[in-house]
Design a protein around this nucleic acid. Structure first.
Length: 125
DNA sequence: GAGTTTGAAACT
DNA sequence: CAGTTTCAAACTC
C-alpha cells in the first residue's frame, strides 16, 4: 500500500479551458482520448469531435512547427522501460526548484533519471 | 477540501 | 529568440 490508494482510478485530466486540445492535457499529450475518469468540460478529445481533435493538432503544428520544447529537448527521445513494464518516451525536463525530485519532473514522473537532454538546474538525479 | 507551488505549453 | 502569461497537475496546509 504505497501508491494507488487515493481513489484508485483518477487518471483523467481536468482540462476545461483548452478542451483537451492542447499539450496541457495529459491525454492529448499521450495521444489518447479522454475517458469517463476525465472530469474535463467541453472535452473535444472524447471521440465525438475526432475531426476537431485532428484539426487542433494540425493547428498547433502549423503555428508551432516545433510544437513544444522539441527543438533543444527533442533531440533524441529516450525510451525507458518503467518498473511497471510500460515504455515511456521522455525528452527532458527543465526543473530548477524541485531538482527533479518531484512529479513535476518529466523524468521523475516516468520513474527514470534525468538524461543529457535535460536542462534542469541542480539536478538531484 | 481548498489553496499554493511548480513545470511546461502557449502567446506576445 | 527571449520573455511573459496561461494551463493543468502536483504538492502543501
Amino acid at each position: 500500500m504505497e501508491e494507488e490508494s487515493q481513489q484508485g482510478k483518477e487518471r483523467g485530466c481536468r482540462c476545461g479551458r483548452t478542451k483537451c486540445l492542447k499539450q496541457y492535457c495529459q491525454c492529448f499529450r499521450n495521444d489518447i482520448r479522454c475517458t469517463s475518469d476525465c472530469v474535463c468540460s467541453d472535452c473535444h478529445n472524447d471521440g465525438k469531435h475526432e475531426e476537431k481533435r485532428i484539426e487542433a493538432i494540425r493547428h498547433i503544428r502549423m503555428n508551432n512547427p516545433s510544437a513544444f520544447k522539441g527543438t533543444a529537448l527533442e533531440l533524441e527521445d529516450q525510451e525507458v522501460t518503467t518498473p511497471k513494464g510500460g515504455k515511456k518516451t521522455v525528452r527532458g525536463c527543465r526543473c530548477k526548484r524541485s531538482k527533479c525530485q518531484k512529479k513535476y519532473c518529466e523524468c521523475f514522473s516516468a520513474g527514470i533519471p534525468c538524461t543529457s537532454n535535460c536542462v534542469c538546474t541542480d539536478c538531484a538525479n
